[in-house]
Design a protein around this nucleic acid. Sequence first.
DNA 1: CTGTATCCGTCTAGATACTG
DNA 2: CAGTATCTAGACGGATACAG
Lengths: 111, 111
Amino acid sequence: MQELDLRYPNCPVRNVLIRFSDKWSLLTLRNIERNGKMRYKEIGNAIPDISQKMLSSTLKHLEEDHLIVREAYAEIPPRVEYSLSEMGKSLMPVIQSLIDWSLAHFEEVTR
Amino acid sequence: MQELDLRYPNCPVRNVLIRFSDKWSLLTLRNIERNGKMRYKEIGNAIPDISQKMLSSTLKHLEEDHLIVREAYAEIPPRVEYSLSEMGKSLMPVIQSLIDWSLAHFEEVTR
DNA sequence: CTGTATCCGTCTAGATACTG
DNA sequence: CAGTATCTAGACGGATACAG
């Protein structure tokens, strides 16, 4: 296996990490994890300060990255449910450890 | 303790995570961890595609967040050494688990 | 309800030149 | 050597209006 060295731009680790390195991805994943299946508007309600545009964009990216699953039902009004993929679920303990660390150290970091 | 709910913009966890949610922070921390004390130029060399501006900016932020320690020596030519703080060291296992996950799943994520 | 389209201001990030 | 200053292009992100 080559190009695993973090120094290089095409390092796969760098190209994975960059996908969560935005304002809303971890937060969105965390909410879907907590509530199981969630509808578009439920997620929006759970993150009061996200705009529709960023919510759509974030969900689309997470789906493209195979971290969440999108199920659309052809009803009127339409219903769309988002849930974690198996891979998404496997990421959550790692995110949880990040959250735990943040909780333990935020006073020192932001001091 | 209040305002620990991830939903709110002033949640401390969100305000900690946002500090690593950029292109260079984790990469810089990882390099300093691997090599112990590093000079400005050494870090730059270890990350060939970072610009001077982004390196300066990233190092400054990491120092402000108390994750790294900056030691400047009044020599000519000047010498500045960066190393992980104790808190920075405590973050590295978490980052390592992120890297491990990325390594295990990058094919599926980027597929 | 679940989005998309558009506009627009701000922030990010790189290139280059320059300083102590 | 270790940065800073300036400029610029593009990405990010919010508000609003609109569509299926």
